[in-house]
Design a protein around this nucleic acid. Sequence first.
DNA 1: ATTTTTACTTAACAAGATTTAACTGGCCTC
DNA 2: GAGGCCAGTTAAATCTTGTTAAGTAAAAAT
Lengths: 233, 233
Amino acid sequence: MEEKTKILLCEDDENLSMLLREYLQAKGYHTDLAPDGEAGYKAFTKEKYDICVLDVMMPKKDGIELAKDIRNLNSDCPIIFLTAKTMKEDILEGFKAGADDYISKPFSMEELIFRVEAIMRRTKGKKVKEKDTYYLGKYTFDTQRQILSIADSQIKLTTKETELLTLLAANVNEMVERNFALRTIWIDDNYFNARSMDVYITKLRKLLKDDPDVGIINIHGKGYKLIAPKTEE
Amino acid sequence: MEEKTKILLCEDDENLSMLLREYLQAKGYHTDLAPDGEAGYKAFTKEKYDICVLDVMMPKKDGIELAKDIRNLNSDCPIIFLTAKTMKEDILEGFKAGADDYISKPFSMEELIFRVEAIMRRTKGKKVKEKDTYYLGKYTFDTQRQILSIADSQIKLTTKETELLTLLAANVNEMVERNFALRTIWIDDNYFNARSMDVYITKLRKLLKDDPDVGIINIHGKGYKLIAPKTEE
DNA sequence: ATTTTTACTTAACAAGATTTAACTGGCCTC
DNA sequence: GAGGCCAGTTAAATCTTGTTAAGTAAAAAT
């Protein structure tokens, strides 16, 4: 059996951390949460992780301290910091403490996934399974090239179209919550972004109309579900 | 045994210099530190360096003075300046004193590495272990000779074309941020340079149009991604 | 020394992507 | 079945990217 990549996520904002875990899970990562630096350290000593994502600002022990401690265990586990946007000093401090990368808040979850995968690619070389082509009924959707094809026509999708369709395709025949999609792709789930997402749902529906077995349905008040016939993996 | 590239780093902020050394070391460079211009000069007379990275603002003897002195030893050792972002005058002075390139603070370490490697590529021609030939679908891209070939046609690329394509090729199938590219290649990420980069993206797309599996796609508001089929290493 | 070539930048405009706005209709509750 | 919220659609506005051509400056050639 294939081993899942294991991520240790230290973040004191529980909202955020639950959300991130959910998303990482959907992407096939196993994620353990720690609400502060001390808990993070404890978790790190008990389990073997492939990657650590540490908030810089945390109670009890901040991310920088924690990173140093992790490095002291002479671990070469890659570390990604989450920092507030302006804190250039944090970033420097972070690199000194042995960080591999950092992301400034606010960030979209896609961004996090992207960095995680970039690091896994660099370090492990393998282990990134990251599906990049989905088969949806008669459609083929290449997330790398941002191309949706059916029969012999290829349609180039825009970035947002790709992001949204990727999210839906990663959860075919399962519901994706509106807010989850908004926060994943648009970062903020305010009124206007919600309208914007509506617009993109409309666009995707048009793009997907050539196969009657494929479509996006709305679950009132909850979210959307991409419907497509099951295919062999 | 392969000789390491030797870098002389003159920088009075010890935090920063230690950090840079660590990073350069990780990238396979040997780095000597000097905390001020005089120490830098002394070090330079004693050792042979492949490249000098000088902070402009330093106690005792500033980077400009030091560069002049280094040039007086009729050395052709490449020099990179570190300057504060706003100090346009420094940059002019620096070039007058014989600089090869400069980086404005704050900069990312990737940026520094990239510049160092670009210079090594230009000057030494050798010694950079960094991959110097990329295989992009049916294309072969020789960064040393600045030649892009497909089938039996060879196209000579200009310096800027080469730099941009190298940056993209070094991150195939991954996004390169617009600003990163701008700051790395054009040094400053202002409006006009951004337009200029657009122009070069267009040129590269034209050059790459003979293999449908290769292309540069835009990630709206973020950056570019060079798409190419995966090849065995 | 003058012309020619080359690399690159600036300008101007066209096309594309995304968001905002305005309006329409559906669904859900009471 | 009326009122309120949620979703769908379309078009306009805004912002980003793409393209082409003209402009500039330095290098190379004559």
